[in-house]
Amino acid sequence: MKAGAPEKLIIDGKRLDGRGIEEMREIEARIGVLKRADGSAFFRFGNTRALAAVYGPRQLHPKYLQDPKKALIRCKYNMAPFSSYERIRPGVSRRSIEISKILTEALSQVVFVEEFPRAAIDVFVEIIQADASTRCAALNAAALALADAGIPMKDLVSSCAAGKVDGEIILDVAGLEDNYGEVDMPVAMTPRDENIVLLQIDGILTKEEFEKALDLARKGCKKVYEAQKAALKEKYIEVDEDE
């Protein structure tokens, strides 16, 4: 049930869901969840669940979009009608077009697109349950699905949101904090070199607050990366048992 605006979002250093201000929600990551896709993954931040499927590299149609030098990454973000408190109207919206675009741009930074001239790599991300940070979960799932599909990449992409509620800088914005907090700042980076591939801010931060939030988000991305790494290696665990 959707509640009205709470008076305070942080009480005695604890957030509404009982987390500390620098604590993340539970993370779950799995790959190879869809049988018919070339690569697929599931990613969860608490109650936010994303499912990603990768098809390709495959022939690109319409033909005029083909680039003789590199592959085109096409990302499609969609929220399931039942994913939120209120029904999401099926089909594209202003918001889903925006998120599809930023996901495409973030992933294009890490994929070796020049290895597949004239081809398309299609990434579909479905949000099956939304509780803030859906774009972060979508990106984490998409990066895993690309790796599962055997697509060459410079690095994975790990993403996590930072924010500000009740004047405090927090990590991993969730639920009511997103609706009634002051700032929501999703960040995505390549975990090894810490190159930022996505950064959006909704709200106002001072320079010091921004730096603190970014630093916190960086720590969050590291944690996400550990979960992604474990998910990728888990599928092929038998090798270690053999040795």
């Binding site: 070339d38 690569g39 390709g56 590299p57 495959r58 055997g150 697509i151 990449m153 410079k154 690095d155």
Partner: peptide, 23 residues
């Protein structure tokens, strides 16, 4: 660094990674 999710194959000084999937 590795480009793909795969298995390492060492050939003297050459480091290869054989992808576990892909087209």
């Amino acid at each position: 660094r590795s480009k793909v999710l795969g298995q390492v194959r060492l050939k003297e000084k050459l480091v290869n990674v054989i992808s576990l999937s892909g087209v």
